[in-house]
Design a protein around this nucleic acid. Structure first.
Lengths: 166, 166
DNA sequence: GTCAGTGCAAACTTTTTGCAACTAC
DNA sequence: GTAGTTGCAAAAAGTTTGCACTGAC
């Protein structure tokens, strides 16, 4: 499905959601949805705010962004993550379900695909719970930081008997 | 392993960590560790602050709590979650690895055990990543909210032709 | 004695709220 | 016309920071 097609589909879904829940179809809401579905990967409110203000023709207030994102989450068109201290959001319609690898040293977040794991999670027996979606965060060291860490250990062992540095 | 035993073990681990990293062994740090390992399940900074101030004999500042928790996370004795808007923490030594079910309607968080899923995650092939721990958040409707939801749908269908209420 | 660590308050960041103006219905 | 939405600014909530004091080493 190409990008334009996705945008039209999510617009339709959003319209249905708004109608079903008695919300108004304001231009702000559609502009926000459109911008979000132009973003690949994660974004935070501030990034979205700047994008809307600068790149797009439509400027909306932060309050409206928070309001609308809440609606989009309820409409299952956006998911929210909390990696660091501020909330990160991500479009989720037609966005392959993936997991997140988070390096605890450098903070880098990488998306990983793993079909088997996805299946295992979806098929896991949950006691009296209706699952709609999930987030798997894998914490550890990315390749780069892990190498640096090993290097440090090696050095530390070498210098073990001649401690001079702080 | 009984509670007292766990506390002594984590204290030892923490001491080793502090020594290895050139940090001081202050009474505040041990008091915080001890309080945390008296808590079953999740807690946030504020809860911990009040607990330390009221229940325990030891009062520490919020700044010190943030500092110490950071050390504890690095020492792998505490993990951090972000369900809602404030960070939730949880002790993780000898704390069975579990997953979290989060009801998107009422916000209730339930812990679930699932051995198969745990294995599947641990054994999943990760491209160049050294996994230390992970968090799986399952979002959906808890039994109670799901029932209420179905009820609402049913009612809505019944009242479909005689729309009177707001 | 020295400097890492602490407490306090102020600063900062992110999110929520109250209210007047606006507009989709 | 009216009630749901928006923008703005103020407030709230959570976290970080600067600085003087304290105490672990």
């Amino acid at each position: 499905m190409d990008s334009q097609n996705v945008k039209e589909t999510v617009k339709k879904i959003f319209t249905e959601y708004l109608t079903a829940n008695g919300h108004r179809k304001t231009p702000e809401r559609y502009a926000i949805l459109d911008t979000i579905y132009s973003i690949e990967g994660h974004f935070d409110i501030d990034t979205l705010y700047v994008m809307m203000a600068e790149e797009e023709k439509f400027r909306v207030s932060r309050a409206t962004l928070y309001n609308t994102i809440l609606l989009l989450i309820q409409a299952q068109l956006v998911v929210r993550h909390q990696f660091g201290n501020s909330s990160q959001y991500e479009r989720c319609y037609n966005n392959n379900n993936h997991h997140h690898q988070i390096c605890t040293h450098c903070g880098k977040v990488t998306e990983v695909q793993n079909k088997e794991l996805q299946e295992a999670i979806k098929n896991s027996k949950l006691n009296r719970f209706y699952l709609t979606h999930y987030s798997l965060y894998l914490y550890g060291l990315c390749n780069k930081c892990n190498k640096a860490f090993k290097q440090k250990i090696k050095q530390s062992n070498n210098n073990n008997n001649n401690k001079k540095e702080k």
